[in-house]
Amino acid sequence: MVVSMDVHLPEDSELTVNEVNLSTSTLLAGAFHLGKYCENANNEFMLCRMEEKDPRKCINEGKAVTACTMEFFRKVKKSCLDEFNQYSNCVDKSSGDYSLKHCRKTQGVFDKCVFEKLNIERPAFGYFCEARVHDSKRPKPLEEPKAVYPDATPALPEDADKKPARFGSRFYWMTE
């Protein structure tokens, strides 16, 4: 494997947290409110992940994301469990691809409950497909500096004598 002993890998104890143990239909049913509830943590993590391009550097942000997700689903379980179960059951069983379009009625009930109990509104249509601006406190990673090759051929000096070309242009129909 390409990972040698020089590469620092975090210990298992650093990586072990309570994982979100939920099925796809459950996650998709709660997706919009989850995204709104954990927007800051999610943006922070995704920005880190895209900027650093290294999973090792974003472990804490990732833990924050998972903790936030757990917190959201705990809250939903406490306040809107029946509505949520109804909705996720509908999402699970109405189509083969967990399509949300078949479940507008149960979705309405769930939305209402979440809005009343947790005060989270369903975000506008296509909200998570839009580009978002996130202001992070994490410093931006340094860009890779331009490579300098010590044995490169030196350029012409500024005041070098630049004579006109002897045979005109190099375009093939103009030579000769």
């Binding site: 996650l27 998709l28 997706a31 919009f32 989850l34 995204g35 954990c38 943590a41 999610n42 993590f45 995704m46 994301v65 949300l100 249509f125 296509g126 909200y127 998570f128 497909c129």
Partner: peptide, 8 residues
């Protein structure tokens, strides 16, 4: 949208 919300 739903998938991008749970992606992180």
């Amino acid at each position: 949208s739903a998938k991008m919300a749970i992606f992180p």
